[in-house]
Design a protein around this nucleic acid. Structure first.
Lengths: 222, 222
DNA sequence: GAGTTTTGTATTGTGTACAGTTATGACGAG
DNA sequence: CTCGTCATAACTGTACACAATACAAAACTC
């Protein structure tokens, strides 16, 4: 069995990432239990895991809330992610093999297909993008690194704002991936690190622009 | 109340870090519950937390084991820690204030006292050293960074092997802290980053030397 | 005798009841 | 009308009981 605990985890996580549970909202174990169709025990398990990911916060009296990410929190996470993920790309460059390179190329081609339609398929883009980075992380071959990045990649708001990415931002992301592939093909660690660092930092500014645009007047993001 | 869960956490954690629970050993929830004098529920909580720190590993069928850290695992952790903690030192340099600087100086003086006795007080050294780094982390002022480093600092074996550090390694650590203080006093971010990176990397090699010495013939560490 | 199936035991997952704690609202005094 | 206090309600922590699963050992078959 052991499904109940996982179901609760996935369910609550999805509700937080989608915004169904608003930032700062109170989380009652009992209410979540009913919402997930399980008892409080697996919900408690799930909340502990989400707390470790900083998706859930607890106040001094042990009550749980949806973490509210300020812009500076998101900036922090992106800065750390840029550092850690460029390190991962560097390790991957040294450990790259031709078979994995082919997989990465196929993955980025899928990204190209998704963003080159008349109406870009953002959901497919996000999925393939996630896979692309996951493959690199796997090649980097460090459990510790994987665990660390796991807490940095999924951020509330990011997925929701991805819908507002412009076509040029999506294509820029694709072409940065191509650069990464070139660096990997040459086993060039410093190159891979540089490209990845820039890739993540660009993503942050795209997010920040979109976020500013959303929170104030709905102006076009650069 | 809420003590039982914390007691279980601290108790199990201490048993792992001290080596009382050997690396790779099976962890039975019930046995731990009895050993901690609580029921299985808080033990489960504690195991989830320790799992997030990678101090406890679970196999595919959800059974828990003490994580067995290979030398390469420890090397991984140190490399990441060097990267992340030097970033923290850099942020701290930019945010440093005079009051905190005084506290850090006092802390390092306490370290000097601990290591300058006829028989160095390693336990006091470790405590003050932890406090020194904790203060820097607090000044860096990023919850995310704090959470990240939390999973990197405590490592099985490290505390145990600290007993074997030579007098010169301890004094070197003290003097590197002094360098950090100088960098902080001048709000010199790159300097602080460099010193911290070197500080952590030296610590790793001290550990590696001691570890090699212990696992093969008991030769003197450099 | 070797391999496979079956059975028994140990361990974890889940639900639920109860106790202790915190928050909230009502009521009364100033 | 406001502030403080007290009572009640809601929620979390803990324990325990039961169900489900996995591992191991023994027995049976080929």
């Amino acid at each position: 069995m052991q499904k109940a605990s996982d179901r609760a985890y996935e369910s609550i996580r999805a509700m937080i990432l989608s915004g169904e549970l608003a930032a700062g909202e109170r989380l009652s174990e009992e209410a979540l239990a009913e919402s997930c169709g399980v008892s409080r025990t697996p919900v408690r398990d799930a909340l502990r895991r989400l707390e470790a990911e900083l998706l859930v916060r607890r106040n001094e009296s042990q009550r749980s809330f949806v973490a509210d990410w300020s812009l500076s929190d998101v900036a922090d996470a992106f800065e750390l992610r840029a550092m850690v993920e460029s390190y991962a790309a560097g390790r991957a460059a040294e450990r790259m093999d031709d078979k994995t390179l082919v997989k990465l190329k196929a993955c980025n081609s899928a990204i190209y297909d998704a963003i080159s339609r008349k109406v870009p398929d953002i959901s497919a883009f996000l999925d393939h993008n996630r896979e692309f980075h996951a493959i690199i992380l796997a090649v980097a071959d460090s459990r510790r690194l994987t665990a660390l990045l796991g807490t940095l990649i999924e951020q509330p708001l990011v997925r929701r704002t991805a819908q507002h990415y412009g076509a040029e931002a999506l294509h820029r992301s694709y072409s940065e991936h191509e650069d990464l592939l070139a660096a990997f093909a040459r086993r060039d660690r410093p190159w891979a690190e540089s490209v990845m660092a820039g890739h993540i930092r660009r993503a942050f500014h795209a997010y920040a622009d979109a976020h500013r645009g959303m929170s104030s007047v709905d102006r076009k993001a650069a």
